[in-house]
Structure formats: structure tokens, C-alpha cells
Amino acid sequence: MSQIQIVTDSTADIPEHLTKELGITVIPLKVTFDQKETYRDGENLSPEQFYEKLPQYESVPTTSQPTPYEFETVFERLRERNGEETQVFSIHLSSQMSGTYQAATIAAGEVAEKIEVEVVDSKKASYSLGIIVVMLAQYAREGHSFEECKKKLDELLEDTNVYFMVDTLQYLQKNGRIGKASALIGSLLKMKPILSVNEEGQVYPYDKARGKKKAVAKILSAIEEGYKNTPVHIGISHAVAEETAKEIAVQIQEKFDVKSEVITKIGAVIGSHVGPGTVSIAVTKAE
């Protein structure tokens, strides 16, 4: 049996206890404040530190992907540590949102003669990426083959959806992730925007509601429509909105057959694009 390793990036927002428990390798993206201070997401800038720093700057932080060399170094290290039979799944943030997938692809080409690396564009972000990575890592640890893991990964990519609500669209608008018109409409009507990610991996406005409670109700209705009578795994990620995340978790437990649930913090890179107050709900089918 080959040694299967899972690599992802920091935008997956996976809690540290899970990356350690499952042996997931996380490559950090970078966040730069005011074109001066650059940090490695999750390494020398925690979510708490990021949201404390955010109000100190007028401009929205910029983000950047790892270099191909950084990926190449990680792939080489995994081979050295685990042997020549090592096989790697490298699963990343939507290529519509970042060049991370492209950097990993270049690196995989450089090491192709030494190690097998399957680079995957998840077309997801935050814990909708994270939940896929965690489920695949658990599946691999059960002893499944590389081909079986590939099939499982395809199912996870197909079966996972995400809905999120933001306090303001200004971060998405300033970072070019959603049109200015949508930002204007949301602010004028004082509506709570509900967003999702489409099949191409792009953020789009799913719906809107007047107030948080109605927004949550619409999200739960969308999940119910897509996962009727189906056991599910749930991931709730938040940007300094832990109480809201916990309240939603209670509602989900009451409404659905939840096989596992993770509440996690949105890190600096995703936080730079969605802003404080954001809550995201990722859901995938459970067997």
C-alpha cells in the first residue's frame, strides 16, 4: 500500500488539532498590510491577531499565493520523509480566486519524475475546502488506495456546498470578488447578503434577507433542499462571530442528521476578502 499524503493551503481554515491528528500538510498564503507588513497566514498571524490589526489600516490587506518553489520544497520533503512510494493529493483554493492551484501545478511538474502529485482545484474556499480535505484525509487513513481516494475526492467535490453571509460587501467589492453594483444594492437596502460559490469556483449572490435570523433561515432552507433526508457533515467557519456560529450549529443539529460538525475560524487570507462578521456553512453528504 502506498503512503498517501494530503497537502492543502491555509485558506482551508482547518483547525490545527485536525491537521495534526490527520497529518495534513498546510502551505500558508500571505497577507500584506499597507504594502509593508507581510505575514504567513496561520503561521505568524493567527485569526485573532488579524482581526485585531484590521481596523488599524485604511486599506484592505492584499493577499498572495505561495510560490511554486515553496510547493516543490514541500513535495520533496514528503518524499524524503515517507519514501519513494509516497503519493500526494494537493487540494487548493478555487483557481478563480487565487493562483495557488497554478503554483502547485507548476511544482508538481517539476517533481513528476520523483513523486506522484495529484493537484486539484477544489473550486471552493474556507472550510468548504477544509471539509473536503479532512474527509479525504480520514478516508486515506482507513487504508484506501490512491485510486479509491481519487474516486472519493470526486464525490466530495460534487457533494459539497457552501453558503455564507457577510456583514458588508465592501471587502469582496474592493478585492474584485463581486461586482460594485451588488455592493451598492446591499448597502442601500440594509439587507443581509447570502453568497455562495458556483460550479466554476466563483463567488455569486445566492439570495438576500432582511436581518441575520432570516438570512440563516434561508441558508438552512437551501441546505434542506439539497440534502433532504441525507446524513451530513457540517463545517461552520466564522470571522469573529463565534456566538452566531454556535447558534447556527444548534439549529442545524435540531434540523439535520449531522454525523460530524466542526466550528472553525476564518483566517487572515479569506478574512481579507469577506471581512469581520462573516459566517459560512459548508455541508457535504455523509455515508
Rank of each mutant, 00 (worst) to 15 (best):
Q3P: 00
Q3L: 08
Q3D: 12
T8K: 04
S10D: 07
T11S: 15
D13C: 11
T19Y: 00
I27A: 00
K30F: 07
D34R: 07
Y39F: 14
R40H: 12
N44Q: 01
L45S: 00
E48A: 09
Q49K: 15
E52H: 02
K53Y: 02
Q56L: 14
P61N: 02
T63W: 02
P66E: 05
P66Q: 05
T67E: 08
P68H: 05
Y69T: 11
E70W: 10
E70D: 13
F71E: 04
E72Q: 15
L78C: 13
R79P: 00
R79N: 06
E85P: 00
Q87C: 10
Q87F: 05
Q87E: 15
V88T: 02
S90I: 11
S98R: 00
Y101D: 03
G109H: 06
G109N: 15
V111M: 13
K114F: 12
I115S: 13
I115K: 09
I115T: 10
V117Q: 09
E118W: 00
K123R: 15
Y127E: 11
I131P: 06
I131W: 03
I131E: 01
Y139F: 14
K151M: 12
E155H: 09
N161R: 15
Y163G: 04
V166G: 05
D167W: 03
Q170T: 14
L172Q: 08
I178C: 06
I178W: 02
K180Y: 01
A183M: 07
A183C: 01
L184S: 08
S187C: 08
L188Y: 08
M191V: 15
P193F: 01
S196T: 13
G201I: 00
Q202V: 02
V203I: 15
Y204C: 10
Y204Q: 12
Y206N: 08
Y206S: 07
G211W: 01
G211F: 03
A217F: 09
S221H: 15
E225K: 11
G226R: 12
N229T: 14
T230L: 01
G235F: 05
E242F: 10
E242I: 09
T244H: 07
T244V: 06
T244G: 03
I252L: 11
Q253P: 02
Q253C: 05
E254K: 13
V258E: 06
K259C: 06
S260M: 08
E261V: 08
I263R: 05
T264K: 04
T264P: 06
K265N: 12
V269S: 14
I270A: 08
G271R: 09
H273M: 06
G275H: 05
G275Y: 03
P276E: 13
G277E: 09
I281G: 02
I281Q: 06
A286N: 11
